[in-house]
């Protein structure tokens, strides 16, 4: 499971697949204030990406992977925090 849910934080590591979209959504729905750590995430499937874009959670750490860093960061930055 690339998704680890703690009380206040959702950590996404490695490749986030299509199956992770629903757990991610549920976690964020359960704790709307939860912050998301993306540091070690290497790819997010579009379905999960969509969840993040729709809910605009606060991000604690930004992905290091180049593609995500380049294109995802500005999209998530504009909302929450």
């Amino acid at each position: 499971m690339p998704i680890h849910v703690s009380k206040t934080e959702v950590t996404i590591k490695g490749t986030c697949t299509v199956e992770d979209a629903l757990p991610l959504l549920e976690a964020l729905q359960a704790t709307p204030a939860a912050r998301v750590a993306l540091m070690h995430c290497t790819h997010i499937h579009t379905a999960s990406l969509q969840v993040l874009l729709a809910l605009q959670p606060s991000i604690v750490s930004w992905p290091e992977e180049a593609f995500l860093a380049r294109w995802l960061t500005p999209l998530l930055n504009q909302g929450g925090r």
Binding site: V18, L22, L28, A47, Q50
Partner: peptide
């Protein structure tokens, strides 16, 4: 040679509770 990439919802996002993660709205 990707110069710009925008991933946007094609219509306003539904409320968090109503979001269907398996329906692609991007």
């Amino acid at each position: 040679g990707l110069l710009a990439l925008a991933m946007e919802p094609r219509r306003d996002w539904p409320a968090a509770e109503a979001l269907d993660p398996y329906c692609c709205l991007l």
